[in-house]
């Protein structure tokens, strides 16, 4: 695993020195994150550690006050430490780059006035100006791959949480994204629905999709992630292969975090016993 190697064969994401403030509270205190094509990177950390904030910086849903962001070699953001622009992209350019990333939210955020199919077609038709026929064909294909062919004409309110989240994944994938961003995609789901969403995400990862995932599903992280990144109080304090980060935590904060999970969820018990 080329986890922390400086070699950048096909770097999809390159964030450097990201600093983010909400009012007087500094949420991210200089974060560096590189993601290579095809990698699955899982961000973990206690609530308030900044993992969701960091994810939302990638497509500028959160605007950092300092740092640099490259997506697939294109510089989309560059501020020095005094908040001065080094580059300033017009909104249209930013929107274009955003359209090359897919995002899946904790609360699904499907458009309630549209059917599942229309939700998936919306981005390609309105933003990428594809023909309706082309967008429909691709949307049908994606929804089928999510096992939702029987639900394409339903509104979000008629779907279960797990189905909604799979529609949301299809909606993100419809943009042919260079990277898929997941913000706690299973946290709002009833326990019995978590599996179907994780399954869809595993399939996506195996298909070679580049993914950045904020999650508390350490089992998913352990099995699927190429790298696990642990954030604490706005800083990355561990970044490496899952076995290293989750099974041999060195930093005391990480140790505490992982131990709490071991105790409560017991997800990693089989792996720990086998060790």
């Amino acid at each position: 695993m080329a986890a922390s190697s400086p070699r950048s064969s096909a770097q999809i994401l390159d964030l450097a020195g990201i600093r983010l403030r909400f009012g007087n509270h500094e949420v991210l205190k200089g974060v560096d994150l590189k993601v290579e094509a095809g990698q699955v990177v899982v961000l973990i950390g206690a609530s308030g550690s900044g993992k969701t904030s960091l994810l939302r910086c990638i497509n500028l849903l959160n605007q950092p006050y300092a740092g640099r962001i490259d997506i697939d070699g294109e510089r989309i953001f560059d501020h020095d430490n005094h908040g001065r622009d080094r580059i300033r992209l017009p909104m249209r350019e930013i929107n274009k780059i955003r359209s090359h990333t897919g995002m899946v939210f904790q609360q699904f955020n499907l458009f309630p006035h549209m059917t599942a199919l229309e939700n998936v077609m919306e981005g390609p038709v309105i933003v990428q100006m594809k023909s309706k026929a082309e967008a429909r064909a691709r949307a049908m294909e994606l929804l089928a791959s999510m096992g939702l062919e029987q639900h394409v004409d339903k509104r979000p309110a008629q779907l279960s949480g797990g189905q909604q989240q799979r529609v949301a994944i299809a909606r993100g994938m419809a943009m042919n994204p260079k990277v898929m961003l997941f913000d706690e995609p299973t946290s709002a789901l009833d326990p019995e629905l978590v599996g179907e969403v994780l399954k869809a995400m595993v399939a996506l990862a195996k298909s070679g999709m580049t993914m950045v995932v904020v999650t508390h599903e350490l089992g998913f992280a352990f099995e699927i992630a190429d790298r696990v990144v642990f954030l604490d109080a706005g800083r990355i304090i561990a970044d490496g292969p899952p076995a290293e980060v989750l099974l041999h935590p060195e930093h005391p904060r990480l140790k505490g975090f992982v131990t709490r999970f071991h105790e409560s969820a017991e997800m990693l018990r089989p792996f720990l016993d086998a060790r």
Binding site: N95, R98, S99, F105, N109, F111, V127, R171, G172, M175
Partner: peptide, 14 residues
């Protein structure tokens, strides 16, 4: 819901 704005912004909508 704010999430509606988030979702449409993430799709790259103006």
């Amino acid at each position: 819901d704010r999430g509606q704005t988030d979702a449409s912004v993430a799709l790259g909508m103006s």
